[in-house]
Write a protein that binds this DNA or RNA. Structure first.
Lengths: 359, 359
DNA sequence: CTGAAAGCGCTTACAG
DNA sequence: CTGAAAGCGCTTACAG
């Protein structure tokens, strides 16, 4: 049990067991026949020295190091942590470990983090969440994607559209625009016509697509969108609270809110309550994402459900390939093809929506 | 921009620039004088080949690879993701990247994951959250700690007590027992005498310490704890809901609940509402952790605040050493000493607690 | 300021 | 079934 001073190496184990390093390597990897007696001696030496293989040496010697890189914006945001949870589950099933980098909300740092992950020779890196809407950035990303492909690493996009310029990458996305379309249409079906679109950072594809769905719903019914009713800014509870409060103060005319995400909706809910409005009697509110908080608010939020964990799992399957995930051909087939895998979303009806007040 | 087939190596860059690999290495690391002209040529070659250093080779050649391992139970649990958020922030400031492993709720897998992280030669590994209460496990962990020390890697405990057997490790903890003591005492001060302790998995140090605080509060007032009022099980919303519902059905006599964490408290709150009890008029409820959901419930939860992000940051400072965090001696001093750094907790008063109903 | 060479700790054909 | 040896891609004394 006594650890040698300094880290024990294969060499140390070999000497102690009286065999060559090749033999030790073989018993450790179990990929080659070794005499039972020899194996015993080696295993004993390994234990005695507290030997732990050096993954770097192993990786350098050509074995893929079974590491998956993940880039998120903010791990505390449940949108991200639910996806990461799915990634971790599937990665564990495939015997992988995750290197998780965070931009800490500064999206332009994404590229930097991808490079770090690439340096670590992650076999794949998964980019989680919406893409920065910036052409120069996108072409840098495309260049990086090519470099990664050249070095045998995969790039997987999870929750964002494919890269332009036919840069090599796999993608698992969700029908984001359609989710917003459905949500808006649900409100319209309840008689709402003045629907406030609230929150969301315009610099990101997620927001662009959600707003697009909101607009499309109007278009389909031959309604025009009042520009006053689109208030973009942040995906945050605070933003939802403040802008709703301001809208009430300004006596903005609306009977429903479609929030950019659940956190924003939760803030709106509180501002409405503080402002003496009843939800859903006076104002209906719809969220987006269906993260746990959506079930916790009072009333609970009608929201767009995204299969976040599933997206994470699918991303890992795309990253490691179906043969390697340890599962039968469930929907690996579906995934195998080129192009984007798009997961469905659906509206979850809870207590925050009701028919528009008459008059 | 055209990436060569296969990954470009230092060698490739050297050839293209007409210099030795040593020179390329020097310009890349900028730790040695190189002629401006030479530097230019090398940089151009690097760009042309889309060269990305191989972190494994680098690590093998002796450079620490600036990677911090983190082990969590469930990343979706805000207790963990808030700590991890703090870890990521501080790690980024110190130029580190995080390898995050998850036990996915199977705590005994922790050791396995530590080994993986150790194999990857993380310069430190941070164990987040309570410790498994199992002597055999603890001594295995102690053995691993020794092996890590021997190989120059640090083990940092974040949110759990020091290892027994004086195994080498740094620890940042919080006054868990005291938090529960305060919370219980707050309820007693409001006149509550029949306080239900609800939830929490008994196999983990977190729970042990919280229950201990609950008991200590009773002891201090010379009250005995009715065993019927301690209902342990899980740290989950569902558990909180079901057991509260059952307690109501069984007409268990209590006027307040101290929940093992906020999720459990949220479940209890809903069961009370569904059971027609008013909070806080009929029953007071206190949570633990002060995660975002605590502000979201109706009424908002009185709960024990833990400086989760700060704990994460402190853990990184312990992991990389004060000289390396890029900050002046703020509280590095405080941390520098041996033994455990213990962060304070405090009760946050919100709407879920009130004087015990009379009669 | 620059290069040749050793070495980091493994794995894997290639020979026995 | 086992070993000697080359090689993975870097960094770093050691010499110029």
């Amino acid at each position: 049990m006594a650890a040698a001073e300094g880290r024990a190496t294969l060499q140390d184990v070999a000497e102690r067991a009286g065999v060559s390093t090749a033999t030790v390597s073989r018993v450790l990897n179990g990929n080659y026949p070794v005499a039972a007696e020899t194996r015993k001696r080696v295993e004993k030496a390994v234990r005695a020295l507290g030997y732990v293989a050096n993954a770097h040496a192993r990786a350098l010697a050509g074995v893929t190091n079974r590491t998956i890189g993940v880039v998120v914006s903010e791990i505390v945001d449940p949108f991200f942590s639910l996806i990461v949870h799915g990634i971790q589950r599937e990665a564990a099933a495939a015997g992988r470990i995750c290197l998780i980098g965070s931009t800490l909300g500064e999206e332009h740092r994404e590229l930097e983090i991808i490079e770090l992950l690439h340096e670590q020779r992650a076999e794949a890196v998964i980019l989680v969440g919406g893409a920065l809407l910036d052409e120069r950035y996108q072409s840098k990303l495309a260049a990086r994607a090519k470099a990664m492909e050249a070095s045998g690493a995969k790039l997987v996009l999870c929750g964002r559209p494919p890269l332009a310029q036919s840069a090599p990458s796999s993608v698992v996305h969700y029908d984001n625009e359609h989710g917003a379309l459905n949500a808006t249409d649900h409100l319209m079906g309840l008689g709402h016509r003045r629907i406030l679109y609230l929150g969301g950072w315009p610099g990101i594809s997620t927001q662009r697509d959600r707003v697009a769905g909101y607009r499309l719903a109007h278009e389909r019914r031959g309604l025009r969108v009042d520009p006053e009713l689109v208030i973009e800014g942040e995906f945050s509870r605070r933003f939802g609270y403040e802008r709703t409060a301001r809208a009430l103060r300004d006596a903005l005319d609306f009977t429903a809110i479609l929030a950019a995400n659940d956190a924003t909706a939760a803030g709106a809910l509180q501002a409405l309550r503080d402002g003496g409005r009843k939800v859903p009697d006076d104002v209906s509110v719809v969220g987006y994402d269906d993260v746990p908080v959506a079930a916790e608010t009072v009333p609970a939020l009608t929201t767009v459900h995204i299969p976040l964990q599933e997206m994470g799992r699918a991303a890992v399957r795309l990253a490691v390939g179906p043969q390697d995930t340890g599962r039968k051909g469930d929907w690996s087939d579906e995934i195998a093809g080129p192009g984007a895998l798009v997961l469905g979303t659906h509206l979850v009806l809870r207590g925050s929506t009701a028919p528009a007040p008459v008059g």
